[in-house]
Amino acid sequence: MQTKRPPFWQREKYTPYLLLLPAILTILFVVLLPLIFSFYTSFTGYRLIRPESLWQWVGLRNYERIFGDDDFWAAFVRTIVFLTIALNLEFLLGLGIALLINKITWGQRTLRTIMMFPMMFSPILVGYQFKFVFNDNIGILNNALESLGLSDGAIPWLVDTYLANFAIIFAEVWMSTSVFAILLLAGLFAMPRDPIEAAKVDGCNAWQVFRHITLPFLMPFVFIAMTIRSLDVARAYDIVDVMTGGGPAGRTELLWTLIARTGYDNARMGQANAMGYISIILSIAFTYYFFTKLIASRRYMGGAD
């Protein structure tokens, strides 16, 4: 007697898909559909305040305009520079902090918790805090410098091209260095002691141990932290918006302050989405680069491909 085959959703080979279905549906609705929708709108003259403009197909006009827009490309390049400087500074400082904390034997937990404090603030609050610190007239920094006799004039921290970008990077680094520190600290904790002891027995000095054992071992952690932070920093908005709003004269304009102004204040959502899609290239490039480095560093350590 032939047994009747169960309906297909009860067959074993479909079970995994069935179980994954809720996740797949969620991702479809929460991620994919909005992506397709926003991609579509980047080819329209969609303006938030004119819902009917959603159907106004303009082809590649939004993209053509962006390619000819110097302000956009200036913001694009500025974002790359900003990203590069901020990530490297955070990496160096985070590494330093992780190594120092790793040496401590007493009170380490407390220090680890204290180290996380900056991450607990909302970026908007961090922005306001540093806006006040760097204010040229009533700010703490200028007043301190004047009181100490180190400066005799009001330094325009948030106006000068270099100083303004420095101030924003400083705020960003202050808030997020602990992300690096925590991830690298986790790496240090997971590190086997044997190679280090073997190296010491073989007569390596501290620098050689760090350079050839600790650092290569930490690199996979570094690149994971870099990937996460590069996506964060590429979306930097709150701090910049509060501190300078991308100004003055566009000197601190990053991609997302420009895109938010285009999309919301000017209500040109179609064009803003086109800018968003070009900006995604930047994030994809950084992510791809860091993942390649991650795989390379794991291979170097004899890890799995």
């Binding site: 806006k131 040229d136 007239n137 325009p156 921290w157 948030l158 106006v159 709003g245």
Partner: peptide
């Protein structure tokens, strides 16, 4: 005017005048 004036909005100018400077 203060060098940071290009970042000022209404609160900054009002509070500035009230500060007596």
């Amino acid at each position: 005017v203060p060098a940071g004036v290009l970042n000022y909005l209404w609160d900054d100018t009002g509070l500035g005048f009230a500060s007596g400077t």
